[in-house]
């Protein structure tokens, strides 16, 4: 059975594992206990103490806070229930044509899509970019089924797991009501 020490996983996470070691890792069958070791390593990776359930992004985690499952940035900022698209609570910036050319000069500049950038309101890290047609709903890229994952795939018990459901439209609904 392939297995790696916690130190190896920590190094991999921090980008300190030499490429030659990573290449060897790729040639091996996957280590089945990776998830647990990874979560353990992640605890060393952030400054706060909340229980990490899953890392969904370079900087974003699903954590368990009392009875809530929320998205939290590595800087400590919280985005709310993980079933609501976290982007709806970020800062947004849409580039105009000149600003696009700053990234990709002619003839590489796209013309029919708009590039949206999402920042963390606290640390101003660029968390996500999306290139969609003007007027397209903000995309909810990944909604994990936490319940099935922990209970059915990992055979772990989790308390008060909320139902697997996309709640994003409830956010816009509340915005429309406040209008």
């Amino acid at each position: 059975m392939v297995e790696y020490s916690s130190e190896v996983i920590e190094k991999l996470l921090k980008g300190e594992l030499p490429i030659s070691e990573i290449q060897k890792m790729q040639m091996e069958p996957k280590d089945p206990d990776r998830f647990d070791k990874y979560i353990k390593a992640l605890k060393q990776h952030v400054d706060w103490d909340d229980e990490i359930l899953m890392r969904i992004h370079e900087h974003l985690y699903i954590i368990k806070k009392e009875n809530n499952y929320v998205v939290k940035c590595s800087c400590g900022h919280e985005f709310g229930d993980y079933r609501e698209n976290w982007k709806l609570k970020a800062l947004i910036f849409v580039r105009d044509r000149n600003e696009l050319e700053e990234l990709y000069p002619e003839p590489l500049t796209p013309e029919w899509s708009e590039l949206r950038e999402f920042y963390c309101p606290n640390c101003a890290t660029l968390l996500w970019t999306e290139a969609l047609i003007p007027g397209y709903p903000i995309n909810f890229d990944f909604l994990p089924d936490i319940k099935a994952f922990f209970q059915e795939w990992l055979n772990k018990t989790l308390e008060n797991v909320p139902e697997f459901k996309d709640l994003s439209s409830e956010v816009t609904e509340s915005w429309a009501k406040n209008e």
Partner: peptide, 8 residues
């Protein structure tokens, strides 16, 4: 991971 992934 089970769940929904959207890529328009």
């Amino acid at each position: 991971v089970p769940g929904k992934y959207r890529i328009p």
